[in-house]
Write a protein that binds this DNA or RNA. Sequence first.
DNA 1: CACGAGACCTGTTCGC
DNA 2: TGCGAACAGGTCTCGT
Length: 276
Amino acid sequence: MPELPEVETIARLLRLGGPASSSLIGRTIQEVHILWEGSIATPSPAEFRARLNGQEIRDVGRRGKFLIVQLSQDTLLFHLRMSGDLLVEPVGATMQPHHRLVLNLDGGLRLAFNDTRKFGRAWLVRDRDQVLRGLGPEPLDTGLTPQVFHQRLLAHRRQLKPLLMDQSFLAGLGNIYADEALYLARLHPLTLSHKLSTHQAERLLHGIRQVLQEGIHHSGSSIDWAYRGGNFQNYFKVYQRAGQTCLTCQTKIVRIVVGQRSTHYCPTCQPVGPEG
DNA sequence: CACGAGACCTGTTCGC
DNA sequence: TGCGAACAGGTCTCGT
């Protein structure tokens, strides 16, 4: 489910509080409920519960699609995968059917990890790098210059769509934002990475940043029954728009399957070949 | 190295 | 109405 903008939205909500909830910073974990042991990547459920108890939440952040909760002793990380979500609720609220982990905090609040499809995971580690080590650069990090990005593209001979979704190449893009970024950059999803010119690489980086920033600005996307809050789905230009007309040229948006994932693009605005 | 298929899960939507 | 197939924001592992 969530890609970078959705995770960033959740991280900000937990860190700063929001209309319906207050900040988690400074709160202490008083009780840990494990509803589905499979949601814990490491350590064992017993150790997970024991170590979490009594730790204070010092900060909440994000790296790629990982949600990072810095505690007084350890780091707690979540990956939401397809259907995960993190909710702040009153301690006494009804336990929802898909709640997998629930941390009761002081001040009458609890943090609930809800995950319908059970793909999501939580890690409790001393050193966050144990989990985050393999990730590529943050797309919005200004240290990622167009030159560096171009070099990284040239280092592979891969189709752009799957490459953009490879978290070791770039951290945070998923199926929606990859399609939208390629559209903004006017690049065909099957274009080979090592064929990109300096100018095309620059366009791609710009498209990625633009779509991510817009996504964050709109608090992410909410599709179907999953995820809540954001409204960026109302601004999709190609994703889930197969058969509808391109907002630029009126050509019908096409859907193909690339790397077993739905891929949407405009055949006119995103041509294959050198001029693409 | 690059790519495709299958696995992991549950729920909704679509087509007959 | 019923029922199976297709599909869903992700990632891992295996085989070619």
